[in-house]
Nucleic acid binder design. Structure first.
Lengths: 357, 357
DNA sequence: TACCGCAGAGAAAGCCCTTTCCCGCAGGGA
DNA sequence: TCCCTGCGGGAAAGGGCTTTCTCTGCGGTA
């Protein structure tokens, strides 16, 4: 690889001058030398060594991002928002997929710190895991102590700036909607228990049901992976145990899509026999059939806000921005069927006693 | 930020020793000093400066990847394959989204070169653009001249190693399938004309139709963005001009999903009135309703192969691996309807003279 | 006892840039 | 004419790390 001194030598100038031409320094250089340098660059196909540059100008310009998986639409949307603001400000993003592995998350914080990022954004659910949370906070604190900026999206464990989708309110919206439609036998397919996103959404849902005199017993909840296959499988388990269910709340849209797949296989009509509610409103939600009724989160905006916080002026006190959830009514949620559903595989069971307000 | 010399000073050793402990060098260090260094690292929350490291050991370990958009399922799958091999070999991936902007692609080649990547993988369609192709090849050649390895996925313009999905054969499969089902009035919603992927798939499709004595006139092709909305819009235009169409081939699954959306809005039943074929077999294809009949490409495997080529031993001659396409029959393609469709909005028109073999 | 070899540690030379500091020179004002 | 100013350019000092080379001191062999 050609180096800067190669270029300088070839152009018959000092490395300093070559550097100034190449970087468009404010220091003036005569046109003649400039030409010579540019010519040498072209001839040698010179590309500056990014590591050397980054080391020399200890500049801190890139921003580190840790998500679960960029190709998951939830994070893809958030990332779109992050990217938009970053690009506007001429920042490079370094995006890491933790695949929801806490250890990997910790490693990536170190890695990004090592890469001298100007700021760090963690997106995605927090964990109910004290030891991990403490470790993470220590690392983040150490990073902030050296001037790094940190913001989190959707996790409350961190003491600094945060952008929070209102998961709890979203769960509440879902619950209220189903109650309004007359459902009582409501099942939930949930993501991993250890995720705060799961428990927050569940808490809101439960609150809505409780307010309406319904309840949400643990036996009507199935925990699985937060993806399509997890949703499909959890739905199967749920229906197996509780054939009289008239509604299923999926704690994200991917699971909801899995649920629709299982229901189709089972031959249960949506929403005539079973209603389905999703969560997140990923782009694909409107394209499944029937189109998914879901709780929308302003994903792109969440990204925009987080990046703005982190690149904008700091604040004395940590800022928490809560962004509202919104119910999007499409075609998968309908009124509770008039009669008890005739279940195909298993014998119809007597309704278990739901309490009434 | 604490530096290595800070650590060394605190531990009462030389920077050399500290470095050896931290990096697990093969050079032996007494346990006592090791302990002291490790303690200092922990106390100072020391993280090595990645740029300095990368500069000092001019090692070239990371691999650069340029895709259209990682969050596009097509590339997400490919990337999964790339990642798998890279992780196995302890390589870091730097992934850049070109968003199908040739200039950005060129910039990213430079950027990644500047970051001293050991290899470069370009995934995604090539362009029918000689000037661009020449420029890109020059840049790649310059990179290879300095020992860099290059592989491309799905583009023939490059002279080096390549992994090629058989787009043409895939188009052929789609055409043959529709002919077998009796379709004659076949429309195509295609990606941008400038992409070789578009023209390759189209060529295969046209070949199949021609062999069966059908034809594919330009008026039955609509070019649009290679995404959902492009597909929806192109479908609308196509149906508007040609209400008697009985089948639509989408040149990728995203467009196919857009087509399904438009057909649903229009009130045309799939596949009873109109058949739809996709291309790629993205994960979501099986979850739309009806499930999408499509041409499968071994996306993950393509990624695996490309990364293997690029990290494995070099070859004297450039290697081209062509990976086969496969037709996946699901529920969107059916036999041609018996009678001419009763079109809702526009008056039924006389069939234009399709030639018969 | 004298010498060789080796283990373990440090000194210092890069890695490739950027940027400050300094120098020479030309032009303009006194 | 002299001095000051300012412009254009180069020398050199980092930036933080790795790694080679060198040095010291010890145990073992002749």
């Amino acid at each position: 690889m050609a180096t800067l001194s190669d270029v300088a030598r070839r152009a018959g100038v000092s490395p300093a001058t070559a550097s100034r031409v190449i970087n468009g320094s404010s220091k003036p250089v005569t046109d003649e030398l400039r030409e010579r340098v540019l010519a040498a660059v072209a001839e040698l196909q010179y590309v500056p060594n990014a590591h050397a540059q980054l080391l020399a100008r200890s500049h801190r310009s890139a921003v580190g991002v840790i998500v679960h998986d960029v190709s998951d639409p939830y994070f893809a949307e958030i990332t779109r928002g992050l990217q938009r603001v970053a690009t506007d400000q001429g920042r490079l993003l370094m995006i890491c997929n933790s695949y929801r592995d806490p250890d990997r998350e910790l490693e990536y914080v170190e890695l990004l710190r090592g890469h001298q990022v100007a700021a760090l954004i963690l997106a995605g659910s927090g964990y109910h895991d004290e030891a991990f949370t403490r470790q993470l906070n220590e690392k983040l604190a150490a990073y902030e102590a050296t001037g790094g900026r940190v913001a989190v999206i959707g996790r409350h464990e961190h003491s600094g700036d945060a952008v929070m989708p209102d998961n709890r309110a979203g769960g509440y919206l879902a619950g209220r909607e189903l109650c309004g439609l007359g459902h009582r036998a409501i099942g939930v397919i949930a993501g991993p228990r250890i995720l705060t996103t799961t428990t927050d959404r569940l808490a809101g849902l439960r609150q809505a049901l409780t307010e309406q005199g319904r309840e949400l017993p643990e036996r009507r909840i199935r925990y699985a992976e937060f993806d399509r296959d997890g949703g499909a499988e959890a739905t199967a388990r749920l229906l197996d145990a509780d054939p009289e269910l008239t509604a299923i709340v999926a704690l994200n849209d991917s699971m909801a899509i899995g649920a629709l797949a299982t229901l189709r296989t089972t031959g249960l009509a949506v929403p005539q026999q079973v209603s389905v509610l999703g969560f997140d409103d990923m782009p694909i939600a409107r394209d499944v059939t029937p189109a998914l009724t879901t709780v929308r989160l302003p994903l792109v905006h969440m990204g925009v806000r987080a990046m703005s916080l982190v690149l904008g002026p700091g604040a004395a006190a940590p800022r928490v921005e809560v962004l509202p959830a919104e119910l999007i009514r499409r075609d998968t949620a309908g009124p509770v069927p008039r009669s008890t559903r005739a279940t195909a595989g298993s014998a119809p069971r007597a309704r278990r006693g739901d309490t009434t307000s």
